[in-house]
């Protein structure tokens, strides 16, 4: 039944739909996230805002820290490997992590290739800014996509831009004549077989989560975490979103994307 592994992995993401995945750096934070109603936690040594502030090379987290978080919560635990760093991915697989995030938030280890994710049994999630990038990652074996946004800024504009781009690309692809599909694939770097799946389904063939500048570190993390979970579950009910937004305190100051230097943008990593 091993030939079903990809399907099983993509189906785990289906069970996470409509939920919130929270970044955590230790077991205490993981417990807060689980109690607030997170559907999964991302275990990492520093949250993206701190990676950005500290600079230097950002790597996979200490397996011991990840294992402590796995032992603390019953929800799925995800962890990040550097782009192209298949050895970090192997370590995370040996830990039996529930999802590996091949993430641009860490410093890329290979500036040409992403990890050949088809060699792994555990699922991968990868970042994407448009349909071409998402389709290439799916063809490499990613069982879930994450629109990138601009991590660690608290500015949501890039997350919006990437989601808008993705949806726009999908709508255009679905409206094309069959003869126009191949040139569209060529111009956008979309593997042809993935393009055909997208045309048939009218969406990505795997689940997407939106990331980057959406959630922020907070003075009262439990309160803010609960509010985010509530607002996500009732995203189309303004009264409930309004109630969730009351009195959750100051967000982080954040960094406006428009004032950022191009070379400081993390989302550009990955190709």
């Amino acid at each position: 039944m091993e030939n079903n592994r990809f399907e099983l992995n993509a189906q785990l993401a289906q069970m996470l739909k409509g939920g919130v995945i929270m970044d955590v750096t230790n077991p205490e934070q993981a417990k807060i996230a689980e109690e607030a109603g997170a559907v999964a936690v991302m275990a990492l040594e520093r949250v993206p805002a701190d990676i950005r502030a500290n600079g230097g090379v950002a790597r996979m987290s200490d397996p011991e820290m990840i294992a402590q978080i796995q032992a603390t919560v019953s929800i799925p635990v995800m962890a990040k490997a550097r782009i192209g760093h298949f050895v970090e991915a192997q370590i995370l697989e040996a830990l039996k992590i529930d999802y590996i995030d091949e993430s641009e938030v860490l410093t890329p280890a290979d500036d040409e290739n992403h990890i050949d994710k088809s060699k792994f049994k555990v699922p991968f999630v990868c970042g994407a800014r448009n349909l071409g990038e998402a389709a290439r990652r799916i063809a490499e074996g990613a069982a879930m996509i994450r629109t990138k946004g601009e991590a660690g800024t608290g500015d949501v504009v890039e997350a919006v831009r990437h989601m808008r781009q993705m949806n726009s690309d999908i709508r255009i692809l679905c409206g094309l004549d069959e003869a126009e599909v191949m040139p569209f694939c060529k111009n956008n770097g979309i593997p042809y077989h993935i393009a055909q799946q997208v045309r048939k389904l009218g969406r990505l063939p795997v689940v997407n989560f939106a990331a980057g500048g959406i959630a922020t570190p907070a003075g009262d993390p439990a309160k803010r975490a609960r509010a985010i979970v509530k607002a996500t579950a009732y995203y189309n009910d303004p009264v409930k979103v309004m109630e969730a937004s009351k009195g959750i305190g100051e967000p982080m100051v954040g960094i406006g994307i428009s004032t950022m230097k191009e070379e400081d943008k993390i989302a550009k990593r990955g190709w």
Partner: peptide, 14 residues
């Protein structure tokens, strides 16, 4: 009609 019905089988050990 699984969401993944057409996706690549990442580990094709049939």
């Amino acid at each position: 009609t699984s969401w993944m019905q057409f996706a690549r089988i990442a580990n094709p050990t049939k």
